[in-house]
Design a binder for these strands. Structure first.
Ligand SMILES: [Zn+2]
Ligand SMILES: [Zn+2]
Lengths: 691, 691
DNA sequence: ATGCGGGCGCGCCCGCAT
DNA sequence: ATGCGGGCGCGCCCGCAT
């Protein structure tokens, strides 16, 4: 990465001798009978350069140089608070900064090597977006329809430009056809087509007028044999790949009423994504059933952080049931190897630790995390397919956290970005502050925040998940003590009536009766020096308090800090699960678990998996051009051991932290730590896994 | 075959405990909201028996008992001069004879063994119609659409009845859906649906009113994704499987004008098949080109009747070109094994000799020859697929002829059916007389007569095929003499200027100069006694006269009869190629060859093969449910050695005949015979085979 | 020009879930 | 009831052959 100013690099490359990236002059159509753009001067915002140049309207809100500098880090230009791929420019001038003309020749000579006219770009940094390449260089005979559009047709150029901005997550063939269809519908409505181009290419930064198409009788359109609601289709293409109809709300700027019988506005920036109303009245009945308590000792015995493949220790039938969260029994045609395959493929870290929130490694152009400006990444494989719309936003079990949130007594949490080089460490008093200070602050546009808001809505409108049947559980949690990756001593069960438990460095082996789990009494012949030293520091340890609503609070009693893995706390702080270590200073008390959250998370996982299965079956049924691989499905579901770790456990390391900024990468490298298994949540999970 | 009266057996079998084959009562629909047949007494022609019986209108023209007796021979009922499969009846009453009721239960219990309730039928005689079975017992998931029709829906029963009468030659899935679609369109037009049922089940014997459906804007409908003209679609299903739009002409009885903008009549018996007008102005330019004469010695050297696989002696490239009549070079994706495979598979006889014109062995229900009442059968394989719509109607090279037409001097030809037992030998003065005497006389409904009429139209409107270039041929024919299956002596060439040639038993080896081919001069050390005796009987032999229009006349000069294979004469007498031996008595003179006919035949073969190739490619492209086999294609094309034999040769056996009624089955078993190769026709054939 | 054949989307229809 | 999703045919469109 060179230090001097450079331009962004697009995901779609237009090699060609021309210096500009342009749309051809619509006035010079060789087809005299075409009604398309036959008036040479109908729009004042158009500046005509020469007969082959189409000049985009000058962007009224040029991006500041500091924004461009930020964008420089990862070769993406940020527009409208989101990252977008930027078309190729070789004049050093950002695309939106001035009136830049597109050269038709650059479209027609894609065979020339890209480097020949882009010498200033370090090509090692250019993300290879294979799907995009397929889009343009496809030799698929199924794409014959696009060949009907002559390359001389200006529609084709517009389609190609608009295709550059699609957000991935859809079948490229579908995206192409959908854009082709839209452009065709707009070709006689020049103003609206211009509005669409401006909206999309500016990423919504420009205020644009409505882009309307005829509304069909049932409000759906069909593209490539697939039906969809128009504004949802195009919102998915250009804004949120996985948005659903219920989540889209018209903004005030849109002049077309939602109930307009003739027209529908498909301007993707005339809609905002909101929490779906479908969760307002969420049915939590699965929690209130009074079915007999089941034996979930198998789940309890799982050791996701210490076993290389914890699923292997389970009985085979349970593995099948568990790994796909009940999907298996509903889909007999489901590949039978999905169980173990998912466990192995999804949890293992596929991603290098990020170095800076703005210096993300970019993956496939189809990756839903593409352009995500949150300081967080997914555990998803970089080879993720376009199907990966319901991907799990979490760190894998052995991925190192990049953030620390410091929890001091009587102080708000403070975020420390340990992924930055030490001289650049940033500190924010809370996530909101961090967001506000972030020049690329996004609102609800990122998958993780959207997802968390959805969970909050579910939690807010759900009934109390603490049903009577949970009173049958003899213990509310069990605690396992580890030194490094080895369990020391027996798992310690905390009975339901003992709502407070202290885990300390004491030596009393009978402390259980007094609500104490004395780690000092546990012997380890292989104990390391580091563990010896840390055990001394445990001191008064920590206190866990169990509330009747199922929530758990943690208080640090020790003189030294404890470091906590609590995915509920990640959620509360809008951090991706597993991305953050929560540092508890002496006296700090925080809620480390919430049963409603856990239940909502399980419901959402189930929903995602059903959607993934549906998509898989759909594609498998459709056959032909985009046969999904099993891998695609694997990537979109979460293994049950992940779910168990996220939803049903808390881990506490004494004295020593882990992750970015610490010597130890993983929790299981810390000298002394405990994992708390929360039984009510495990029971919920188990109920989900029942047929 | 038992001697007592029996009922006909259908191609589709309805096992079930009920005694009747019926359509359920439409008045007792369980769905109260259905508008379908909700008026219990709207049509006086309906007689209600019980709530599950639908009584068909009594046929006003019951078939006479003698017709039924004829039908008894082959287990098919003849209606309207054609054979139709007859639904299962176990009460001994013909379906059309009285008001017979259908029992819904018989449809719903197809799992019971058929024999258990049809004990009076000799099941060895029942043709196994696999395609029909597939239609009813299909477990193809692609046919899920039909499952949407509940078995309680009376539409289903009507569809099933109507499906029984389809003529084969179409994709069964398509047929089913097409009938379903039609019945659905007619369900609110009770009178027209009744008319359709009457028309189809009576095979047109009943005069029926128009059956109309809405006419689409472009006049086409779509069924199972395939578009077609409605009346053509249903005419193909119920009358002529391979009919094309141009061949269908509205009859006077139809009340719907062809140009009616709203309605189209799909009553298949409101149309007649006529010779397509597209042959009226047939382009015979291929004959008039003045291209250089080509070497067709390869064709001349072929000995189709004596070589087991004559193609093998040809150079490989020519084999490829010849076997598929130019299809090969136009279809690079064509299976490369079609060449030799076609030669072997199509020519060998696959059929047992027929015993009686009305006692045909029935083949697949999809076979286009199904129900053919002409005293002729095809050389087509009995395993012919439904694709076989352009099948070759001819006897194979080694199939024995079943008929003799006696040609006496100054008398019209007289047909003798030697396939009948001797006590039942029938003699007719000509084919027309035979047809008139035939109670099942058909008009143009049989493929062979249709085809021949088409050829006649082509001949009538074609230019004279005798182009100037043919004058370049040094010889107008060559003659090969055989004893049994062995050629004796050298092939005898007849120069173009020598328009008459006599083949006699003389001994003059220099007779060629005088226009004589003296067979008596040819020696054979292995000569059999039979050949010795016959050679004595050759006497003055035969005289061939070549006319400038390319036709050839044969005169029998011998005191004994000669027996002639002349496919032109077959054509002239409406006999299937190879089905007939033409017996020439002394003094008889007949035209044995016509060049225009030969050329028309080649054109038609080419057309058929192109259609077959098109169909093959279409299905191969479509893939999925009805992938055609290479065999299906093989069956629809004729090998070039067949074409050479049919179009370019005449064979004459002295004294002894062959085929049914004679001791010798095949020509090559006769003691003394000659084959005449006609060079102009061979040149035409060769031109067809040029790329 | 005209017919012909095929691709594909909206309208219609239907089943399913809630 | 209502929404949702999907099947399938007619209308529209287009390319090709003649
Ligand atoms: Zn709008
Ligand atoms: Zn009619």
């Amino acid at each position: 990465m060179t230090g001097h100013a450079s331009t962004a690099v697009p995901t779609c490359q237009y090699p060609g001798p021309g210096n500009n990236f342009g749309v051809p002059d619509f006035c010079n159509s060789s087809n005299g009978t075409s009604q398309y753009y036959s008036n040479p001067n109908r729009d004042a915002s158009l500046i005509q350069n020469n007969q082959n140049d189409y000049v985009f309207p000058t962007n009224s809100n040029p991006i500041s140089s500091e924004h461009l500098q930020q964008a420089y880090y990862n070769n993406y230009i940020s527009v409208n608070n989101s990252f977008y791929p930027m078309p190729v420019l070789d004049n050093g001038v950002p695309f939106y900064d001035t009136s830049t003309s597109f050269d038709i020749d650059s479209f027609n000579q894609q065979q020339q090597p890209f480097a020949s006219f882009q010498p200033s770009i370090n090509f090692n940094l250019i993300p290879k977006t294979e799907v995009q390449d397929d889009l343009w260089n496809s030799t698929d005979p199924n794409q014959a329809s696009s060949s009907q559009m002559q390359s001389s047709d200006p529609c084709v150029q517009v389609v190609q430009v608009l295709s550059c901005y699609h957000q991935g997550g859809e079948d490229p063939d579908f995206v192409r056809k959908a854009i082709e269809s839209l452009v065709k519908k707009l070709k006689d409505k020049r103003t609206e087509l211009d509005a669409l181009i401006s909206a999309v290419t500016s990423g919504g930064k420009e205020q644009t007028s409505c882009v309307t198409i005829h509304r069909s009788l049932d409000g759906r359109l069909q593209v490539a044999g697939k039906k969809g609601v128009p504004h949802v289709v195009y919102a998915r293409i250009w804004r949120w790949p996985n948005v659903s109809k219920n989540e889209l709300q018209k903004m005030d700027c849109c002049r077309i009423a939602p109930e307009d019988p003739d027209l529908i506005c498909v301007n993707p920036f005339h809609y905002e994504r909101v929490v779906s109303s479908e969760y307002r009245n969420l049915d939590m009945s699965t929690l209130n059933n009074t079915q007999m308590p089941v034996d979930f000792s198998n789940i309890l015995s799982m050791q996701s952080t210490t076993s290389a493949c914890p699923m292997e220790s389970l009985p085979v039938p349970l593995q099948h049931n568990m790994n796909t969260m009940g999907v298996q029994q509903n889909a007999p045609q489901f590949p039978s190897n999905i169980g173990t395959a998912a466990t192995e493929h999804m949890i293992s870290p596929r991603m290098h630790p990020i170095q800076h929130p703005h210096i993300q490694h970019s993956f496939s152009g189809e990756d839903p995390s593409f352009g995500l400006s949150q300081p967080q990444v997914m555990s998803t494989s970089p080879a993720a397919s376009p199907m990966l719309t319901g991907a799990v936003l979490m760190y894998g079990a052995s991925q190192q956290p990049n953030y620390v949130i410091q929890h001091n007594a009587r102080e708000p949490p403070k975020l420390i970005n340990n992924a930055l080089p030490s001289f650049a460490h940033e500190e924010f008093n809370n996530v909101d502050e961090w967001n506000q200070s972030n020049p690329f602050h996004v609102n609800d546009d990122t998958p993780i925040l959207y997802r968390y808001n959805k969970l909050r809505a579910m939690i807010a409108h759900a009934q109390q998940p603490m049903s009577e049947s949970s009173l049958d559980l003899p213990d509310w949690c069990s605690i396992t003590y580890y030194e490094l990756d080895t369990q020391i001593g027996e798992t310690f069960n905390v009975p339901a009536h003992q709502e407070e438990i202290t885990i300390d460095g004491g030596m009393d082996p009978g402390g259980a009766r007094l609500g104490r789990f004395c780690l000092g009494a546990l012997s380890n012949v292989h104990r390391t020096e580091a563990s010896e030293r840390v055990r001394i520091g445990i001191g008064k340890g920590v206190k866990l308090r169990y509330h009747r609503d199922g929530s758990v609070f943690l208080e640090c009693l020790s003189d030294t800090s404890v470091f906590v893995r609590s995915n509920y706390m990640d959620f509360e702080n809008n951090m991706i699960y597993g991305s953050t270590v929560h540092k508890f200073s002496t006296g700090a008390v925080r809620k480390v678990f919430d049963l409603s959250w856990a239940h909502a998370e399980m419901l959402e996982q189930q929903s995602q998996q059903q959607a993934a299965r549906h998509a898989y079956e759909q594609r498998a049924h459709a056959g032909g051009r985009s046969q999904p691989t099993v891998g695609a499905l694997e990537n979109s579901v979460i293994g049950v051991d992940d779910l168990r770790r996220v939803c049903c456990t808390i881990a506490i390391s004494f004295v020593k932290g882990w992750g970015a900024g610490y010597n130890r990468k993983e929790l299981k490298e810390t000298p002394c730590w405990i994992e708390v298994q929360l039984h009510k949540s495990l029971q919920l999970l188990n109920n989900f896994l029942q047929p």
